[in-house]
Amino acid sequence: MNYLTRRLITFPIVMLGVSILVFVAIRLIPGDSITAMLGTEAGLLTPEQKQALAAYFGIDQSWLTQYWRWISGLVRGDFGVSVTYGKPVLEVILGRFPLTLELAVLAMIIAIAVGLPAGVFAATRSEKRSDLVVRVLAMIGQSTPSFVVGLVVIYILSAGFGILPSMGEFVPLTVDPVANLTQMILPAAVLGLAFTASVTRISRSAMLDVLGDDYVRTARAKGAPARDVIWRHALPNALIPVVTLSGVECGYLLGGAVLVEQIFALPGLGRMTLDAILQRDYALVQGSVLFVALNFMIVNLLVDLVYVALDPRIRLGGRS
């Protein structure tokens, strides 16, 4: 049984564990979905009407029965119906996911485009003043929460420059790419700040290790230009830990977009999930978390497969 087959077998096991955790966690929050959905109007309903609504959404039954009905529906591709939107959960998720995916991809592009050259730059100037500056900036970026950075950026733009980031109606990329990127570039930079710092530190550390290897010293001894030694010989091997970090961070970016989407008023999957939690929309919360978990696992599987392209010495079939 090869590595890919073993990983695919673990998918349903992990998803089962995630489904149990999110199912129990959302129900441990005080309150119920009917009251949260109707707000003050819930007090106008008679007990019979509340019971009818609870029966309609299936929350009048035991947790075990609710879980069995939900998990049975998942097997058939039925994620349930959202209390908030009155639509199938999967339809609501797929309508919001493209924005969150675009935000995460842009954040990754910015992080790699900035962090990788910065890490290489710092490694080639190890222990010099420029290296120290890069390391300090990376530590600050990694230690500062994204929502703090977002609020500070908005305050500086509004108070210092008299402008505000565009928070109007979201424009999809397929409708107007320029308007879309105008809306998305600042939130993506805020979301990707910590990832940029992590890429900088990991790429610097990996480059320092690789630059001391025999094949790099041999390339230098043969008179290869310094640029070729760094970018053609050293960097490809130093990319492996960066790829590993990118796979893990991609999942975190999808989940971490909640606060950034809330700050910049972006109607993405993260903001929708937060609203669903506040509304006690059990089916939508459960479906969203499972959807993000599945994407996280797929990305990590793809990262493992990329290892082979970066380092032919790795054979996934022989890994434990």
Rank of each mutant, 00 (worst) to 15 (best):
M1D: 10
L4H: 11
R6S: 10
R6N: 08
R6D: 12
I9D: 09
T10I: 00
S19C: 08
S19M: 09
S19Q: 08
I20M: 15
V24T: 12
A25Y: 08
R27H: 13
I29H: 06
P30L: 01
P30K: 04
S33H: 09
I34E: 07
T35A: 14
T35N: 13
L38Q: 10
P47K: 00
A52K: 09
A52P: 00
Y56D: 09
F57E: 12
F57A: 03
Q61T: 05
Q66V: 00
Y67W: 11
W68D: 13
G73Q: 08
V75P: 03
R76K: 01
D78P: 01
F79L: 00
G80H: 04
G80C: 04
S82T: 04
V83L: 05
T84H: 08
K87P: 10
V89H: 01
L90C: 03
L90F: 13
E91W: 01
I93A: 12
G95R: 09
P98Q: 14
L99P: 02
L101C: 11
L103M: 09
L106D: 10
I109S: 01
I110R: 01
V114D: 15
P117S: 03
V120T: 08
A122P: 02
T124L: 01
S126M: 06
K128G: 02
V136G: 11
G141D: 10
T144A: 14
P145H: 07
V148P: 03
V148K: 12
V152C: 05
I154H: 05
Y155F: 11
I156Y: 12
L157M: 15
F161W: 06
G162H: 15
E169P: 00
V171L: 06
P172I: 10
L173Q: 11
A179Q: 13
L181T: 04
T182A: 02
L186K: 04
L186P: 10
L186W: 15
P187M: 12
L191M: 14
G192Y: 03
G192N: 13
L193R: 01
F195L: 07
A197K: 02
A197S: 13
T200L: 14
A206I: 11
M207F: 14
L208D: 05
G212T: 06
D213L: 03
R217Q: 14
R217E: 07
A219T: 06
A221Q: 15
K222R: 00
P225R: 10
P225G: 04
R227C: 11
I230E: 06
I230C: 08
W231K: 08
R232A: 08
H233W: 09
A234M: 07
A234H: 02
P236V: 04
P236H: 03
N237I: 03
V242C: 05
T244R: 07
T244H: 06
G247L: 06
E249H: 07
E249I: 03
Y252G: 14
L254K: 04
A257L: 13
V258H: 06
V260I: 13
P267W: 05
G270M: 05
A276P: 03
I277F: 13
R280L: 09
S288V: 04
L290F: 02
V292E: 09
N295L: 15
N295I: 05
N295S: 10
M297Y: 10
N300Q: 10
L302N: 04
V303F: 08
V303Q: 02
L305R: 01
V306F: 11
Y307A: 04
V308S: 13
P312I: 08
P312Q: 04
P312A: 11
L316P: 03
G318L: 02
R319L: 10
